[in-house]
Design a protein around this nucleic acid. Structure first.
Length: 434
RNA sequence: GGCAAGUUACCCAAGCGGCCAAAGGGAUCUGACUGUAAAUCAGACGGCUUCGCCUUCACAGGUUCGAAUCCUGUACUUGCCA
């Protein structure tokens, strides 16, 4: 992430029109499953409780799925509760069972490096000041010293294999032809252990996570019930889906990351701007701090004047600002306005073009370079063959003019020797001619 | 440990000696229509110096004029038995 989101922390607040935080998160569609609702509602309406959510370092950055959790954590913190942000230094070495196939293990040094990145990202969404300051924890701290024997005696004894086999994540794998290793099968014990550790150390009584993690959330609830005799809670957020059936959080087949180096603020903004009408209201509820009244106003706007995409603009603005800061968001919008679809790129001055190009993937090439080669270099296509196909299909433009097969950049330089390369309607890249 | 079945392109999945760069579906990309939306329709979808050539069907070796297809070994997966 390029800019600290903390600049936004101070202005964030929950919607006062709800009688309590539970009602608000239910309205926002953040509760898919949970332990006893009445108890949770009462608990969250009372004095500060300590809660946690874990993030495993299976990549160098968090992604949009994690953002749902981060925002839920922040909403609970705004309601006065104390967050524990857990980054899974140990669980990241194991990997939770995915429904499809066994994970490839990452080496310890890589995971340790990613732990650092994730901790930095998590920190930006929580406040570390005040009575209910957030705290970061790493489960490697209590898992690493544990011996196999202690683990089996102090944790394993509380788990029944029959119960473990019934967890969705495990049974899905057992019923598939991929099977499951003992390593991944054991994951739920580790997560259960985490919850118990945090319960003992910090009095943590609530864990949140994606509903696909429900089995892992409840394993901790059960463990604490059995070994500590205490009743604790869990909330599972819904899996975010697109109304057209495609996967949420993918842009052109790639994950949308929170790290600006992996998904640029420009691409991030575009992702949200392109949200379906059918999905945009749900996204506003989950990913922004707009109030119910404000969201209902945008909902009406979508119904009345969908072509204005006011809700999408608002959504893109708020989420991009939240993640990348206002300056980066302004730059992303300016770049889009300068570059997008207007026929008249030649009218832009060098400074405007320079800053617009900076938001896009860009390369420096000689004017003799073919457009097909530049497509590959900027990542707009992955091979020359693909470039040729794209050009043949009429999907490639330089400075908004469709190009032919053997085109080069001769004579295409705009102000500052820059050319704008475009594939399809919305995929742009910058080319600096040298 | 024994027996059986399996491992095909991003995913699912056909193919069972030549007509196979490999059916079909999904995902993805492009075009048309649009609102930088959805739906729909059309095309593309291993690589390249693209009327042709090159590299693929778990891995290694073999049989054959010729293998994704047959044989041997190895790895991994699943099921049943122990």
């Amino acid at each position: 992430m390029s800019a600290p989101a903390s600049e936004a922390l101070g202005s964030q607040r929950n919607d006062e029109s709800f009688s309590d935080i539970w009602d608000e998160i239910v309205w926002r569609g953040l509760v898919h499953v949970s332990t006893d609702e009445e108890q949770l509602k009462t608990l969250l309406a009372g004095p500060p409780v300590t809660y946690y959510c874990g993030f495993d370092p299976t990549a160098p950055s968090l992604h949009l799925g994690n953002l749902v959790q981060l925002l839920l954590m922040r909403r609970l913190q705004l309601a006065g509760h104390k967050p524990l942000g857990l980054v899974g230094g140990s669980t990241g070495l194991i990997g939770d069972p995915r429904p499809t196939a066994e994970r490839t293990l990452n080496d310890a040094a890589t995971v340790a490096e990613w732990v650092g990145y994730l901790q930095a990202q998590v920190s930006k969404f929580l406040s570390f000041e005040g009575d209910n300051a957030a705290r970061l924890v790493n489960n490697l701290d209590w898992t690493a010293p544990l011996t196999a024997i202690d683990f089996l005696r102090d944790v394993g004894k509380y788990f029944r294999v029959g119960t473990m086999l019934k967890k969705d994540a495990v049974s899905a794998r057992l019923n598939s032809d991929a099977g499951i290793s003992y390593t991944e099968f054991s994951y739920q014990l580790l997560q259960g252990l985490d919850y118990r550790e945090l319960y003992r150390t910090y009095g943590c009584v609530l864990q949140t996570g994606g509903s696909d993690q429900w089995g892992n959330l409840t394993s901790g609830v059960d463990l604490i019930h059995k070994s500590e005799g205490a009743a604790v809670h869990a909330i599972g957020t819904p899996l975010i889906t697109n109304s057209d059936g495609t996967k949420f959080g993918k842009s052109e087949g790639n994950a949308v990351w929170l790290d600006a180096a992996m998904t640029s603020p420009y691409a991030f903004y575009q992702f949200w701007l392109n949200t379906d009408d059918a999905d945009v209201v749900g996204r506003l509820k989950i990913f922004t701090f707009l109030t119910r009244v404000e969201i209902e106003g945008l909902e009406a706007a979508v119904a009345a004047e969908p072509f204005k995409r006011e809700a999408q603009r608002s959504l893109a603005w708020h989420v991009t600002t939240l993640v990348h800061g206002e300056a980066a968001t302004v730059a992303a919008i300016a770049a889009a306005e300068a570059l997008f679809g207007q026929g008249d790129l030649a009218g832009l001055d060098a400074a405007t073009l320079e800053s617009a190009i900076a938001e896009l993937p860009h390369v420096s090439v000689s004017p003799q370079t073919t457009v097909a080669e530049a497509l590959v270099e900027t990542g707009l296509t992955s091979s020359l063959g693909e470039s040729r196909r794209a050009i043949a299909q009429g999907g490639v433009y330089v400075n908004n003019s469709k190009v032919e097969e053997s085109a080069t950049f001769e004579g295409t330089g705009l102000a500052g020797g820059i050319a704008v390369l475009r594939r399809g309607k919305k995929t742009l890249a910058g080319v600096r001619l040298i």
